[in-house]
Nucleic acid binder design. Structure first.
Lengths: 150, 150
DNA sequence: TTTTTATATTTGTATATACAAGTGTTAGTT
DNA sequence: AACTAACACTTGTATATACAAATATAAAAA
């Protein structure tokens, strides 16, 4: 369905506006679908994202700055996100002994386990959309998004 | 900048994951930029969106259902969004006399005025991104997003 | 006509987000 | 050493979002 139909636009939209709305709308569709997957696990999308970042550290602890700069939504409140993960025992949090301003956050085995359980569902989610394009189109979409943004 | 670099990924990402992250990240960039534009006017992105929908009605009142189905984020709370706009006198709200379950929402002159003031800034915002692609690439990006989503 | 079902909207509540201000720690300067 | 600036993180507060439950009205069925 075209974006004009999705939002039932009553006026003609120029291509610049269509693309902006299309990206915003597509993001909503992706996010809603992803939240459905996460729902039974009682973690939010951004919490999942933090866990993914921590797993990517491969055993090394991550401080708050590092987590922040790797998140998709830069304005998220990292402290409170980590708080939530701590409550669920998906991470540990300790003051860094070398620099007491920093906090060392690490993923626990329980956190790694939930990611392992989610992995196939996340891949399935990503492919639900991407299977509609062939390899060439996927590369092109990725390329165009990067060119558009920068 | 490539999406892997934006989120400083430590692991290789397959194309499906890259596109998902790329759309989410690009939406954040667009939204952050747009919020900067709206900031001096003290309205949020979704409030702006509701005003745009009401202007599109060209004088006809819109009920809550109609607004909801034209919004980008379908889960937004339309009642409370309209409440905020009412406080600022950008809209009027009345019970529909034909069907007392419905609410008729209309944009005021003050609401139309703020949209008129915002119009050139919004166009500038959209073109800030889209000028990086040529016409053919813009059409292609729009097409690929729609194909990807459906 | 009474009861049931469907529709349209609002409200409650818990959580999330945005962003400014505050706290504690370290590094640099005088 | 005392002062100042920079850094890393947390807290406060207002607003927004998600989603279930509640309310009010209208239409349909018994």
């Amino acid at each position: 369905m075209k974006i004009e139909d999705e939002i039932k636009s009553t006026v003609a939209l120029d291509i610049s506006k269509k693309i902006t709305l299309n990206i915003l709308y597509t993001q909503n569709v992706i996010t809603d679908n992803f939240n459905e997957i996460l729902k039974p696990y009682e973690i939010s999308g951004e919490q999942y994202n933090v866990l993914r970042i921590l797993r990517g550290q491969k055993g090394n602890p991550a401080n708050m700055c590092l987590i922040q700069e790797r998140m998709l939504a830069r304005t998220s409140n990292t402290t409170r996100l980590v708080d939530k993960l701590l409550l669920k025992k998906f991470v540990t949090r300790n003051v860094c002994p070398e620099n007491r301003r920093k906090i060392e956050v690490q993923i626990t085995q329980k956190g790694l386990d939930i990611l392992t359980e989610l992995d196939p569902k996340v891949i399935e989610h990503e492919q639900l959309f991407s299977k509609k394009l062939n390899t060439e189109e996927l590369e092109q979409l990725n390329h165009l998004l990067e060119k558009y943004r920068n």
